[in-house]
């Protein structure tokens, strides 16, 4: 069945209006994007909407109380709550480097949970 959907791109604040045409479950045509990231977003948003998820976890012995963390790449939207439950259990000890992998391949996906910040040990 032919199907068309209109999306507002969320990759950047330009917010291009995207048109995605589908035949059954296959994306056949995308228009309205002005960069490659936008085209990719339109494609993924139809087939598997994903987001970069960010939160904070507690950190011991660092110069700050909370460590900001994120998913290394977009993570399936409908599993965000599972992601949050898993990440909440995380206990991190300083020092930690930005980009350091804290949970590899969370929930059997290819995305990691990484630190968003370098935190030195508190002297």
């Amino acid at each position: 069945m032919m199907n068309q959907r209109t999306l507002s791109c969320i990759v950047c604040p330009k917010e291009c209006a995207l048109e995605v045409s589908m035949l059954d479950k296959v994306v056949t045509y995308i228009s309205g994007y002005s960069c490659e990231r936008g085209r990719q977003y339109a494609h993924d948003e139809i087939l598997c909407p994903s987001r970069i998820i960010t939160t904070t976890v507690s950190i011991e012995g660092g110069v700050c109380k909370r460590l900001p963390v994120r998913s290394s790449s977009p993570f399936p939207k409908e599993r965000i709550n599972e992601w949050m439950r898993e990440v909440k259990e995380l206990r991190v000890k300083a020092p930690v480097q930005v980009g350091e992998v804290l949970i590899a391949g969370i929930l059997g996906t290819g995305t990691d949970v990484i630190s968003s910040k370098s935190v030195a040990q508190d002297q």
Partner: peptide, 30 residues
């Protein structure tokens, strides 16, 4: 700490123009 308000902006969306990648506030500041 340096970084100003970026340190509390733990969400992503920073750096798309300057670094062509999607960073969180603390990463952008760092």
């Amino acid at each position: 700490e340096l970084g100003g308000i970026l340190q509390q902006c733990v969400h992503s969306g920073f750096g798309l123009h300057l670094f062509k990648e999607e960073l969180t506030g603390p990463e952008y500041a760092e």
